[in-house]
Design a protein around this nucleic acid. Structure first.
Lengths: 341, 341
DNA sequence: GTTAGCACTCCCGACAAACGAGTGCTAAAC
DNA sequence: GTTTAGCACTCGTTTGTCGGGAGTGCTAAC
């Protein structure tokens, strides 16, 4: 257990390091006006904190740098959320006030504003649609062989897929099929669609639709749970502003990872409620060993539907990031829920 | 006008520099077995070529490096297209052989394969849709205030937009409207839609639809020419493999530019038919002064609908890139045309 | 016209010295 | 017992010097 003074000093060191990016020496700390001890005292405490694993020394005659354990303690026990400037609050609120044509636009703006306000990289996982309910389904033939299947959800999201039509199918048959689907499947959550297809639609189809086997098969393909969630990445290059990433090799590893959608999704796939912080080596990806990731979920009608996250160096302004993320996720949840519930 | 020998030497120097990334000395050239002159002779020719502006010298006792003018001459007069390996041809062909659900998927794969085969950054401007013809239009009400308008083109592309419904509109009215639209606008190219709306639809609507003014206004908004073309970027980080971009500052400028869609579009906005090459300082953007961009258009039924491009260092393997790009753009055009004409 | 030879330029890496930020320890002060 | 002043020591960084080497331009001979 750390003494009050140790906490104070640890806090001072990390604060300092976060803003300077340089190892912090005892003198620097003793000169701070919230600290009333000489550098020698600080030195002793620092040696203790190092022994306990909260600090590290790059080399003998250098100052101290927080370890992962040190940051962890800082995040869990020392920081208090920073309050945002009126300017920043306004910028964020504006995102939700804008007129929207697509949900995606809001999510995209969210990512942009996050990156802009924090000066770190923002990653947003677009709203999960499994829970969305079917509002309408349409099949539009393009020619003899192909058609587009279109699904509209109650949130106004539109998914579409190209289909191969069974040979020699009559347009009237497609119309019949669409009618059956619309009468049976409205308000069904997307994840149930395939199941319902067999339970309820198959029988109906056999009775009324020609070539029902081929049509069924075609439908099955098109109702696949939507592959690939949408991921929005903004400000990926912000990491290069950080002095510890002046090295192309390091930056390359990170940016290469950010280029891959599946890796981004993995990055945001964090269990737990509320704000989650993963610091440095707590990440299992090698490229992320010197980065921290702060995430939280956003909700639609009480259910988590997506994740917003900030990626930055371990030496991140945690207080600020947590405040921004929290405020924004709440706003987003509220907006979505108001709009679509 | 360059002598035959000067061309030979210039070609040798650029070839060498492209592969070594180091200033090329006279000895290196004289040792090549397609060159039968001593290093002293080469030195004389090099001095001449420098005076003519085709070469540059980083400092007195260094070898020579091609200037923008040098590369330009090389691209225009010296290279012959490189033929691709069977492996590479196969990789490219596979993209077009895959089953497709959306055009976008093909475009995306195109970008991926381009970047993969060339080891440079690939940028693809997704197919322009103004020329696409309307296949169907739908309006799906979500609740009392909102609806989604959906437009399907003859190429199977689906666009959608959220609409605010006029207050107290009756669902039947919307249906009437959709019927009018579908009967009048099928097979009209997208860019004509707004114009037709006023010429033909407005009158019809006034006769049959209540609250026609509000509805007209709403429609007008939704038929806006689709803002924001789709841009696909792949392998942006490849630039960091180049020895001349070991410097974070340089890379940052480039990657920041690549993060902005409008800049990407500007980058590919090159007049002219066939393969176009812009070398180093020929680019008007500062961040691109040390890069080259090779572009070409792809076609649907004889009309250019999009652009594919490769971005790399000025020291780029032009021969190879041009071959790949040409082969791929032809394949893409052929595939699109076969599929949708 | 071509080439061997040579003096010259300039970058680069190695090595040494000076510097300074910061430490750990000791002993005195509180 | 805790705090602090003082001091020797460590080690990375900066600066300067020096030799080696790659490459050039020029001259004179072939």
């Amino acid at each position: 257990m750390l003494s009050e003074r140790q906490r104070l000093i640890l806090n001072a060191i990390i604060d300092n390091y976060i803003h300077s990016a340089e190892p912090v020496g005892s003198r620097t700390i003793s000169k701070r006006n919230d600290i009333g001890f000489s550098s020698a005292t600080i030195r002793n405490e620092m040696a203790d904190l190092e022994e306990l694993g909260y600090l590290e020394q790059p080399h003998t005659s250098a100052g101290r740098v927080p370890s992962t354990k040190g940051y962890r303690f800082y995040v869990d026990n020392l920081i208090r959320p920073e309050h945002l400037s009126e300017q920043e609050l306004n910028n964020i609120r504006n995102v939700f006030a804008e007129r929207i044509n697509h949900i995606e636009q809001v999510i995209e703006s969210t990512a942009s504003i996050l990156s802009q306000v924090t000066n770190y990289t923002a990653i947003v996982l677009g709203p999960e649609i499994f829970e969305h309910r079917l509002k309408a389904i349409q099949i539009v033939p393009l020619n003899e062989q192909q058609a587009v299947a279109i699904i509209v959800t109650h949130t106004g999201r539109v998914e579409n897929k190209l289909l191969d039509l069974p040979k020699g199918i009559h347009p009237g048959e497609i119309e019949k099929l669409v009618n059956i689907l619309n009468s049976k499947l409205i308000d069904v959550p997307l994840w149930q669609l395939r199941q319902r297809l067999y339970q309820e639609i198959a029988g109906e189809m056999r009775r009324h639709v020609e070539q029902y086997e081929e049509m069924l098969h075609m439908l099955e393909r098109s109702l696949n749970p939507e592959e690939g969630e949408r991921v929005f990445l903004r400000g990926a290059t912000k990491i290069m502003n950080q002095p510890e990433f002046r090295d192309v090799e390091k930056v390359k590893d990170i940016l290469e990872l950010l280029e891959q959608n599946d890796q981004l999704i993995r990055l945001l796939d964090v269990p737990g409620e509320g704000i989650q912080v993963r610091i440095g080596q707590e990440n299992d990806m090698d490229a992320m060993k010197e980065c921290s990731i702060v995430t939280t979920s956003y909700y639609l009608g009480g259910k988590p539907v997506g994740v917003v996250g900030i990626l930055g160096p371990t030496r991140m302004e945690y207080g600020k990031v947590i405040s921004v993320l929290d405020y924004l996720a709440r706003g987003l949840s509220q907006m979505l829920t108001k709009q679509f519930e």
